[in-house]
Amino acid sequence: MWGWLHDNSTTLQVLVSLLSTCVWITYLHVFLSSYRRQTRSSLMISREGARDLKARCIVSNMGSEAAFLMDVLVEFETEGKKFTTSVIDRLELQGAEGDTSKTGSAQGPMASGSYVDIGSFEDILTRAHRQFDSADFTRDILRTRLIAIAATSQARDLVAACRGFEFIFGTEGSVVHVRPIEIAAKQIRSRRKRKSLRRLLEKIQRDEVLNRSVSPELIGRPGAEN
């Protein structure tokens, strides 16, 4: 046996080296996977405090690093038309005589584990209503979708989360229930989607209102990693 080991020592050394390399590659893969999970950004969009239009819309940063909330978009369909607009500015706080110095914004930094109160769903609809002429804006909407966009990694990367809500109307035609459609917000953070987010922000800043829904191009096909 010792003679066989001596005669095949070179081959055995190569096999041991290959085995050691495979073990280290496996360890490296496990380490990188764990690191990516720990540093992966995660935004949550939730309904808090009530179930009707008085419910608050909360955007939470569940990632391990700070993020800067850049914009919150709302998309909806009314009278057969689809629209997308920004609702991050608290226009309802604007002064009665148009004093814009009293206008607040939900835009700003979020530490890990912190959240931003975007306002009530009634506030969100009011902000969107200012872009349109519909006399009964709320009754025209059956569902809406919110898209929170944030910057991470020293503002180099854009990430987003998307969640839909539907409005349940009572017998008198008023909204009595705001119900989430998905269990949790869908995360949008792939490299390809980041480019779409950047183009989307540029269009919203330029045009203010888009006559289409933007979530299909951001979410992609069901089950896909975004």
Rank of each mutant, 00 (worst) to 15 (best):
F31V: 11
P216W: 07
D133R: 09
Y27S: 13
E202W: 12
L12M: 04
M1I: 11
W4V: 07
S215F: 05
L53K: 05
D157I: 01
I88S: 05
R189N: 08
V72E: 04
R179I: 08
A96N: 12
T171C: 11
F165Y: 10
W2E: 14
R130E: 11
G170Y: 05
R206F: 09
M62C: 13
M1C: 10
A128I: 09
G104S: 03
R37L: 14
L43E: 01
L142N: 06
P222M: 02
A66M: 15
L197W: 01
S134A: 14
T39I: 11
G80A: 04
I183N: 10
R37Y: 01
L93E: 09
L32W: 06
E97D: 10
E65T: 13
E217V: 13
K82T: 01
A224G: 13
L28D: 13
E48H: 09
F167Y: 11
I118A: 02
E217K: 12
W24V: 13
R51T: 14
A55Y: 07
F83H: 08
V74P: 03
A185F: 02
T39V: 15
S60D: 03
G173A: 02
M1A: 13
I183V: 13
C22D: 08
T103W: 02
A161D: 06
A151E: 03
G49Q: 04
N211R: 02
K186R: 10
L158D: 06
F76A: 03
I25T: 13
D136V: 04
S46H: 10
F76I: 00
K193H: 06
V74Y: 06
I141S: 04
L93A: 12
E65H: 09
G164K: 03
F83A: 01
C162G: 03
S114P: 02
G108T: 06
Q107R: 15
V14F: 00
E202H: 14
T144H: 00
P109C: 11
S20V: 15
A185D: 00
T138M: 08
R37D: 06
V214R: 02
F121D: 00
D89E: 08
T126I: 13
I124W: 00
F83G: 06
S196P: 04
R143W: 12
S120E: 11
G220A: 05
L19K: 07
T39W: 13
R36N: 09
K203N: 07
R139M: 03
S9A: 15
L91M: 11
G104L: 05
D117H: 12
S17K: 07
S114W: 12
E77R: 13
T26A: 14
T152V: 15
L158Y: 06
E48T: 12
K81P: 07
E208H: 12
V59W: 06
L53V: 07
D157G: 07
H129K: 04
L12G: 02
